[in-house]
Simulated assay, not measured.
Amino acid sequence: MHSTDASTDTGTGPVPRTDEGSEDTLDLQLSEDLLSLLRTGDPAHAPWPVAPGSAGGDLLDRPGAWKPAATPAGVFQLVPVDIERDLSLLSHWMNDPAVAAFWELSGPESVTRAHLRPQLDGDGRSVPCLGVLQGTPMSYWEVYRADLDPLARHYPARPHDTGLHLLIGGVADRGRGTGTTLLRTVADLVLDNRPQCTRVVAEPDLRNTPSVSAFLGAGFRYSAEVDLPDKRAALMVRDRAFRDLM
């Protein structure tokens, strides 16, 4: 299927909270002992300069320490968000009407800050990142533990399932296949760096056919339709077992 990613950037945003904090997690509290067992990696070896402690969550094998990837569009790297450095840019992207229609985070910078802060202050089950292509920030990604997310209430989750939310920030990078290329790249980064993860998942809005098409072009399969609190979504899955076939 020919894939266009004109709306890939807008259709895979997070499910908004339906009440104060209740949809942020599965209400699973992880003990410090368990967290320490899951911690791996050393931010000092991150390929992009990141502040100590900001290389991403231990629960996700530290995305900030993952090596850059060569893609047909150029060298790509995930860089964990620094809220002071990146807030203005991310808020600007969130106020793009095409993005705001799905992410629902338009408004002053405080809106974007309030969305980022729980992830940055949390236990690492969701890591917000800039997507840097050829040295230029051009996309926003959330790499998250789908099995520890409210999404797991709506599909048969497996341990270490890893989810993706994304938006393409620059209009010039939309509709040219870049989103499809980067979806495959980031899914491969997850599978290469998270050996316990057998599947990468996403839940674009079912109405966003360009986004669904982009996921298909990136090697994801259409698994099911799921009713989430704010949308009917297409559950897209990239399986480790079939990554070389799709």
Rank of each mutant, 00 (worst) to 15 (best):
R153V: 05
V15S: 09
P72K: 10
V132Q: 07
A172M: 12
S223W: 09
A65W: 04
W66M: 06
S139P: 06
W66C: 00
P47C: 02
T40H: 07
R17E: 14
P16H: 09
P204T: 02
E203H: 06
M138F: 08
R85W: 15
D9N: 05
L87M: 09
R240Q: 05
H154S: 05
M236I: 01
A214G: 07
P150S: 08
G217L: 00
R158W: 11
F220P: 08
A172L: 11
R243G: 08
A224D: 12
N193K: 08
D123S: 13
G217D: 03
T162V: 12
R199V: 02
I83D: 04
S139E: 06
E84C: 14
L90A: 12
D161M: 02
D24R: 14
L164S: 07
S7Q: 11
L166M: 02
L183M: 11
R85L: 08
G175Y: 09
L78A: 13
T209S: 15
G11K: 01
R145C: 09
V127C: 05
L120C: 06
V111N: 05
V171S: 04
D188V: 14
P210M: 06
H45N: 10
L182V: 07
S54K: 12
A65H: 12
R39D: 00
P159F: 03
G179D: 02
V201H: 02
N193D: 04
W66I: 03
R232P: 11
R221G: 09
T25I: 10
S213F: 01
S88W: 03
A6P: 12
W93N: 15
V212Y: 03
L59T: 07
G11M: 08
R174Q: 09
L235C: 00
L35Y: 00
D147V: 06
H92R: 13
D123L: 04
V50C: 06
T18R: 10
V200F: 00
V201T: 06
A73C: 14
E142L: 02
L191G: 05
W48Q: 05
